[in-house]
Write a protein that binds this DNA or RNA. Structure first.
Length: 668
RNA sequence: GUCCCGGUAGCUCAGUUGGAUAGAGCAGCCGCCUUCUAAGCGGCAGGUCGGGCGUUCGAAUCGCCCCCGGGACGCCA
């Protein structure tokens, strides 16, 4: 297969994104260039090679089942073999034969010359598993083939444009733990698509519009006019307080009023509630007027809104920068940016009969999906209709979301839109996605097919008591404070374990460790489940944690530092990979699984698959590190073969951590 | 009420389109640092995979029915 790698190279390094502040690593990254040569190389993946051979054998032996999947997977345990084919069982059913007979026939027919040890009857186990042992030379070839800048990840045949919707901040609301997962997960998915060679557009769908925002704007404008606050020194805490007060002011206790009337709770209670309701109605009316002014871009009101926007976004983008989340002002595409498009869009929906009146409002019914040309339904039926205009003429968040789909597909050319959003929004997302498809807005202008609209749903962040993460007094924790505490704890741990690190070095290490702990904790479990947050566990540095992976990487880098100190040349770069001993072989086999692991994340939108892979890799490396001395190897040839294996392992680890959005360090 | 998502070791979690004896980490116990970072490695112990029925050569995984927990359900965003 012909590889040019130029694209993979551009997307694999991106040191400015995940290595900033670690200049040593940048050198490490660019050292990959030495392997960059546009050469013809054999396909690396043994699974694919074995599958080809088995497919040929199946076609020849059982023509009636030609094309059947050979079902090649890595063996669970190294004692059994390296890879196995599970095809015989299913095949037995299809051709009406005993699975073991089928396996025996396949063992006879398959030609594994140059790839694996010859198969015998003893290769068949249980109901018909066929166990395969790779030849060391084939393993070395496979490793050599992936030992390029792209680390075995091929440039995609179909380069897609993927929009990733991440962040989910609201104007004038303090960021708390609840805002952690969307940027962490969304950025990781974005990096995954980028790494695979797709075009990624990040979108920060800021909640910056609508009546609630108008309420705050009015209150802030009011306070500024009265000199209670200064717009110049506004903080997000001020805004958060104003938001809550404004919300409460406009909250009419109509239910309370009716209860008082019904149960006759006395004139005093009645008077109080009437006053509350009247006051709230007044505030509500004022907020509506502010909204109208805002929509008309009234300079005085708009200036206040802009200030609120800037203050909020500053905090948001600072958090992103601190966490190495690649989301900048470029990604901003708030609800306000759709405001002028909503009325014409809804008119279009009405004109084409997509939206219909119902109880005074406008809805899009999505319970009976349209059929595609091939007869398949274009979305899953949903009983609840999607509301696009209220009976008072106002638009809803679904309207904006439909509008966003339209822009993303029609203008930005998205083949795929991924929403990194709270699991509770699932129904809403399915509704507006269905409505957008029904309206034709989700049909890609070039391909003519609907864009894939996917919800990367995630659960809540819980405290160690299993309840939503809060302070002891029950308040939500500011995200910036949480990050600061994680960094402080990381710094403390680094100081304890590595007192020789000081100054900027120590700070950088603490930062990397803190980010690793925080992000890996979030990414390493199935995202749809709630996850339990605990500083101690995430920073424990033991077991399946971010710091453990960093540590594995650091130990590899240490070998190369020592090698340089001892005057070991770079002859190892052309040495055959060491993969004779079990620990070497296990490491080699694990390395080969890397491209599949990254693809798996893109296919399922599940970052924890890559985490699991990297943890496995770090584990087999640690065993190797323990059992196979590199610099003190028995022969120079063995040393060089191990050095090359370590180099590849280090690059895969750093690359994988980069996909997760975790920066690496040279020592810790 | 309808729908969605969970339930796996004492705790926190993995478990590939159904595959071999259900795996890690923490906590507990036992070993291993004059040698490349012990934030590590090796070992022991720990399981009615919420319950039941079914499909199959084979079920944590698929189907049906229950139980428990969380969440969402047109005029907030």
């Amino acid at each position: 297969m012909f590889r040019t790698n130029a694209f993979a190279l551009r997307n694999s390094g991106t040191p400015e994104l995940w290595n900033s502040g670690t200049p040593e690593l940048r050198n490490f990254g660019t050292s990959e260039l030495r392997n960059f040569l546009p050469t013809i190389r054999p396909m690396a993946d043994p699974v694919q090679l074995l599958a080809e051979r088995f497919r040929a054998a199946i076609d020849r032996t059982f023509p009636q089942a030609a094309g059947a999947d050979p079902l090649i997977t890595p063996c669970k345990s190294p004692e059994i073999g390296d890879f196995q084919s599970n095809a015989a069982m299913g095949l037995g059913k299809r051709v009406g034969k005993n699975p073991r007979e089928v396996a025996a026939a396949l063992v006879q027919a398959v030609d594994l010359a140059g790839l694996a040890e010859p198969l015998t009857d003893k290769s068949i186990a249980g109901p018909g598993f066929i166990n395969i042992r790779l030849r060391p030379a084939a393993l070395r070839d496979a490793l050599s083939a992936m030992d390029t800048a792209g680390l075995g990840i091929e440039t995609p045949a179909d380069r897609r444009t993927v929009v990733v919707d991440l962040m989910g901040v609201n104007l004038a609301k303090q960021m708390h733990v609840g805002h952690l997962r969307s940027p962490v997960i969304g950025d990781c998915l974005a990096r995954t698509f980028e790494r695979l060679g797709h075009a990624v557009i990040r979108q920060n769908h800021v909640g910056d519009w609508g009546l609630p925002i108008a309420m705050v704007t009015r209150r802030i404008a009011d306070q500024a006019a009265r000199g209670v606050i200064s717009l110049d020194s506004l903080t997000l805490d001020d805004l958060d307080a104003a938001y809550k007060t404004a919300q409460a002011e406009c909250e009419r206790d109509i239910a309370g009023l009716e209860a008082v009337k019904r149960y006759g709770l006395g004139p005093k209670a009645l008077a109080e509630l009437e006053e509350q309701v009247n006051g709230a109605t007044e505030s509500f009316t004022a907020a509506r007027q502010t909204l109208v002014k805002l929509q008309a871009k009234d300079p005085a009101v708009y200036r206040v809104w802009q200030r609120i926007y800037d203050v909020t976004m500053k905090v948001c983008l600072d958090v992103c920068a601190a966490l190495h989340v690649n989301c900048t002002a470029e990604a901003n595409a708030g609800e306000s940016s759709y405001a002028d498009e909503l009325a014409p869009m809804v008119d279009d929906l009405v004109a084409r009969g997509v939206a219909v009146p119902d109880q005074g409002a406008l809805i899009v019914r999505v319970d009976a999906p349209d059929k595609a040309a091939d007869g398949t339904p274009m979305w899953e039926p949903i009983k609840e209709p999607c509301l696009v205009r209220k009976s008072d003429g106002g638009f809803l968040y679904a309207t904006t979301d439909i509008c966003a789909v339209r822009r993303r597909v029609q203008k930005l050319g998205a083949h795929e839109i991924v929403y990194a959003i709270d699991a509770r929004q699932n129904l809403h997302i399915r509704q507006f996605a269905a409505a957008a498809i029904k309206a034709g807005y989700a049909i890609h202008p070039k391909t003519g097919r609907p864009a894939r609209i996917a919800h990367a749903a995630f659960g809540a962040v819980l405290g160690e008591d299993g309840r939503p993460f809060k302070t002891r007094s029950g308040e939500s924790v500011k995200l910036a404070d949480l990050i600061a505490e994680m960094f402080a704890r990381a710094a403390n741990a680094v100081q304890t374990r590595s007192p020789e690190l000081a100054g900027d070095d120590a700070r950088r290490v603490a930062e990397a460790v803190g980010i690793a702990a925080l992000k890996y904790g979030d990414l390493s479990t199935d995202r749809v489940k709630d996850y339990m947050f605990g500083f101690d566990r995430l920073l424990s540095f033991e077991g399946n944690t971010g710091p453990y992976l960093l540590y594995a990487f650091v130990r590899i880098r240490s070998i190369f530092r020592k090698a340089a100190e001892r005057g070991v040349g770079d002859g190892w770069k052309a040495a055959p990979f060491a993969c004779d001993l079990p620990a070497e072989k296990n490491l080699a086999l694990a390395l080969l699984r890397y491209p599949g692991a990254v693809r798996g994340v893109a296919d399922t939108l599940e970052p924890h698959r890559l985490c699991q892979y990297l943890y496995d890799l770090a584990g087999v490396f640690s065993t190797f590190f323990d059992q196979c001395p590199v610099l003190a190897a028995e022969t120079p040839a063995q040393r060089d073969g191990r050095l090359r294996l370590c180099d590849l392992a280090g690059r895969v680890l750093a690359d994988g951590l980069g996909v997760l959005g975790i920066p690496t360090v040279e020592r810790m």
